[in-house]
């Protein structure tokens, strides 16, 4: 399964919280340099799957491989230099300014008593620049709008300079304009830096619009995987979400657009 071109691979993983099984016998691969979006109804196990990809959860069965190596055998810091994660609800310490928060993304690159280096400065500056928050560098994070704050968290993950970036619902709590803004930003990062991106999204139409590779889950099992055109069909949407619908072409992008009946 670990063909070249797949960075992060899940092999027959079963995931559970305590005795409660969430995901059973699931295999999937993230194509390198592409945007993978995981979709599914509430509580289908998509966030759990993302946590397993990020090594926050140890599979009860099966394994998660990064470049062919079980992620649980990779030293924590070394993994953090390859794999970044933006969790669903990160917490900004009260009063912290944007530049200081983004600078925390440099932790895996510094030694135990590592001093701040010019490379660290450059990475932070590039991350602020790429996410368009350079002007906010000295502002307190808790004064920012939801969309700005989300871009700051993405900037922190970028400062980590990982080749793989995982995001758990990066558009929650944002209005539509800011959702598009964040997703455009991620698409640009993928195009410019070649970062492999995997994210969980709620909105199927946005997922179809931004994904190169779409994975649909239902009740902890994979129902379909492939390009949005392959996955987003009337049959699959009904199977995954239980929603009778029509699928038409998005008049702007040509990607599939789900219209509930």
């Amino acid at each position: 399964m670990n063909t070249p071109g797949n960075t992060l691979v899940v092999e027959r993983a079963s995931l559970s919280y305590g005795d409660r099984p969430i995901v059973t016998d699931l295999s999937l691969a993230l194509p390198e340099g592409q945007v993978t979006v995981i979709v599914g109804a509430n509580a289908c196990g998509k966030s759990t799957l993302l946590r397993a990809l990020a090594r926050l959860l140890r599979p009860a069965g099966g394994q998660v491989l990064l470049d062919g190596r079980d992620v649980h055998t990779i030293p924590t810091r070394q993994l953090a230099r390859r794999l970044g994660l933006m969790p669903q609800a990160p917490i900004a310490p009260e009063g912290i300014v944007v530049a200081d928060l983004v600078a925390r993304g440099r932790h895996p690159h510094q030694g135990l008593f590592g001093r701040w280096s010019a490379a660290d400065d450059a990475a932070v500056a590039a991350a602020l620049e790429a996410t368009g928050v350079s002007d906010l560098a000295d502002r307190a994070v808790d004064e920012l709008s939801g969309g700005q704050r989300q871009r700051v968290w993405i900037a922190m993950a970028l400062a980590q300079e990982t080749s793989v970036l995982l995001l758990d619902e990066p558009t929650t709590y944002l209005d539509l304009a800011h959702q598009i803004e964040v997703l455009d930003l991620l698409a640009r990062l993928n195009a410019e830096r070649g970062t492999t991106i995997a994210m969980v999204l709620h909105d199927l139409n946005l997922a179809a619009r931004y994904a190169d590779h779409l994975v649909a889950l239902r009740a902890g099992r994979m129902v379909a995987a492939g390009t949005p055109a392959e996955v987003v069909t009337e049959e699959t949407v009904e199977a995954v979400f239980g929603l009778p619908c029509m699928v038409v072409a998005d008049p702007v992008t040509g990607t599939p657009l789900v219209v509930p009946r």
């Binding site: 990020a54 926050l56 970044g84 994660l85 990160p90 310490p93 925390r104 932790h107 895996p108 008593f113």
Partner: peptide, 23 residues
């Protein structure tokens, strides 16, 4: 004192800290 940086990162939440390489 040796744990002060990991401790600062823990303030971001357990998942964010773990993703930044904190055990």
């Amino acid at each position: 004192l040796a744990q002060s940086r990991p401790l600062e990162l823990l303030q971001l939440g357990d998942d964010a800290a773990a993703a930044l390489g904190v055990r």
